[in-house]
Design a protein around this nucleic acid. Structure first.
Lengths: 121, 121
DNA sequence: TTAATATATGAATATGTGTTCATATATTAA
DNA sequence: TTAATATATGAACACATATTCATATATTAA
């Protein structure tokens, strides 16, 4: 008896296909990073912050005012963006200025917009 | 009195910055689409499905077996991918074959991988 | 030193999301 | 028709996540 239906009720229909495709799936660790990476873009607030910082650096307070949101909420989101290396910061006295950490990011945002303009409902 | 501290305790520090940046934030509707779009990529299971389908079309059962997951879970995820126009399908009897709907998708996946390889922790 | 202010952060809460389970639907075979 | 099978789907549950609140930290000014 082959390994059958542990999770899936249905039988393996195209075993060759599965064997062919399998080696092309990235390893788990890489997938997790990719998941985290894209997840960061999957939030309106963070997208707004990224678009804003693509224009110029801003301090936390300005971002909060710009987006009409609490300072705490922005700070939490900036922490996430920092952790994923999407933004960097510099301190000037008690003010912290955030900016994009990578020009790739703008490219990715642009590519996203292109896709939704073309295909997305 | 200006509009002050409705949400944010801190004062507006750089009013000009806010005014300069504001017009460059995409409109809410577009942001929501973009959010949804990127959110789809922010899940390991969906990423695996997309990588698999970038090699060749597959039926639901094969995908479930490939990923060692339940048919229902895969079906739910495919629905999401369908709704966001990332995959299309063709029916052959009772078997449904899914495939990528857009070559942009592979590009975006690649760009994601490039980023995490370069910068991401 | 104390007061004021910009930012960070832990906890709580509300909301969103992925998987499972049970079951429905659709198609083919008998 | 009935049985078998591939897929779809609603509901439930467990878990993740965004924001708020309260408060801590850090820096500057007085």
């Amino acid at each position: 008896m082959e390994k059958e239906a542990e999770f899936c009720k249905c039988n393996v229909i195209h075993k060759e296909v599965i064997e062919k495709v399998k080696p092309n799936i990235p390893e788990e660790k890489k997938l997790e990073k990719l998941e985290t990476f894209f997840k960061v873009f999957g939030d309106k607030t963070r997208l707004k912050i990224l678009f804003a910082l693509s224009i110029q650096e801003m301090c936390v307070c300005d971002i909060a005012n710009l987006l009409d949101m609490g300072q705490s909420a922005i700070s939490h989101q900036l922490r996430l963006l920092k952790q994923t290396n999407l933004v960097k910061y510099r301190k000037e006295g008690k003010i912290v200025y955030y900016s994009l950490d990578d020009s790739h990011i703008e490219e990715l945002l642009t590519q996203g917009i292109i896709h939704i303009d073309e295909k997305f409902i």
